[in-house]
């Protein structure tokens, strides 16, 4: 354990490490921290003729459109709900497939299936929405043509909000499974064989080995993915919702999230202030959540905590 040192002393002792970290620090300063002054836009009235800090300060006025809509709570809950489903189901499935895949013995099969599972990642939501429409459209979609040929009443999926709760989660996972699976697969590759050998000698079967060795070893990776996902829990996946649901107001109660709402509200007017205020709301939410969760993780096991 290193002893406490002053910053200067630390820089001198670990100068090479500092130099190695320098590009990263510079990158985030330029790319992220300096532009962060823009947060102030959230509190001003945008003016083409005046600069940011000379613009009129309007307090929380830009936030009004969020709570005046009367649906902020609903949007927040929807966004939270979907993201939690994405995180939990997505990670569980990614871990399961990664474990199963790592145990496959037939090499070509293993490699081929891995590659194929990555394919959906390349299909943009624009394209996906076209496919989905072709499957579910009422008059001549895949599904209803099938149902009709079996003499079953056709179903109107695009008028059934609850169905989309499931479908959206499904499509999200479908698209991202390959991506998150790889992370776990790489982590499994990194687990030393010695553990398994030892367990085998102790008489543990493959299920036990998986449960008592592999799964615990994946925890740090899971925590990283979790904390990153939590930080942006109010944001993201705009394209998924926007492309699949689009203008279909019938489904909004079940499928509208903060991002889609903000997009629609600001499409017609360019109000930098309002856009910034929405972003700030999302950030604050994620910030509080992450700091809390990280604190809990730190209590449980310091090594797993992010910071």
């Amino acid at each position: 354990m290193a002893t406490k040192r002053t910053l200067l002393k630390e820089i001198i002792t670990n100068r090479i490490l500092f130099i190695m970290l320098l590009p990263t620090i510079a990158f985030f300063l330029i790319n992220s921290y300096v532009p962060m002054v823009g947060v102030y836009y959230a509190f001003t009235k945008f003016d083409f003729k005046r600069s940011l800090f000379n613009s009129e300060f309007v307090g929380l006025q830009n936030f009004e459109f969020l709570w005046k809509s009367g649906i902020l709570t609903k949007l927040t809950l929807n966004t939270l709900g979907y993201n939690l489903a994405f995180i939990i189901i997505g990670n569980v499935l990614a871990i399961v497939t990664a474990i199963l895949l790592s145990e496959l013995r037939i090499k070509w099969f293993k490699k081929l299936t891995q590659s194929i599972m990555f394919l959906p990642y390349f299909i943009s939501f624009v394209i996906l929405s076209v496919i989905v429409y072709n499957v579910f459209s009422y008059e001549n979609g895949f599904l209803n043509t099938l149902l009709k040929s079996l003499s079953i009443e056709p179903v109107d999926v695009y008028n059934t909000p609850w169905a989309w709760v499931i479908l959206i989660v499904l499509f999200y996972i479908w698209k991202n499974l390959g991506y998150s699976m790889i992370i776990y697969l790489a982590a499994i590759t990194g687990i030393s064989d010695e553990y398994y050998e030892a367990a085998k000698i102790d008489g543990a079967n493959i299920f036990q080995r998986t449960w008592y060795i592999t799964v615990p070893m994946l925890k740090p990776t899971f925590v990283v993915l979790l904390l990153f996902a939590l930080g942006s829990i109010m944001k993201g996946q705009f394209d998924l919702f926007y492309q699949l649901i689009g203008n279909n107001g019938v489904l909004y109660n079940a499928t509208d999230i903060l991002d889609t709402y903000v997009y629609r509200s600001l499409k017609v007017t360019f109000d930098i202030g309002m856009a910034s205020s929405a972003g700030l709301y999302q950030s604050l939410f994620g910030f509080v959540l992450v700091v809390t969760v990280n604190y809990i993780i730190r209590k449980v096991n310091e090594d797993y905590a992010l910071f």
């Binding site: 985030f28 823009g38 904390l227 950030s283 910030f287 910071f307």
Partner: peptide, 22 residues
């Protein structure tokens, strides 16, 4: 020694951003 501080420095940028314009 400052690995956690720097980790936070890096992670923090995923939480807050100044938006597109700046």
């Amino acid at each position: 020694q400052y690995r956690n501080a720097f980790s936070f420095f890096i992670y923090f940028t995923t939480l807050f951003g100044g938006g597109l314009v700046p």
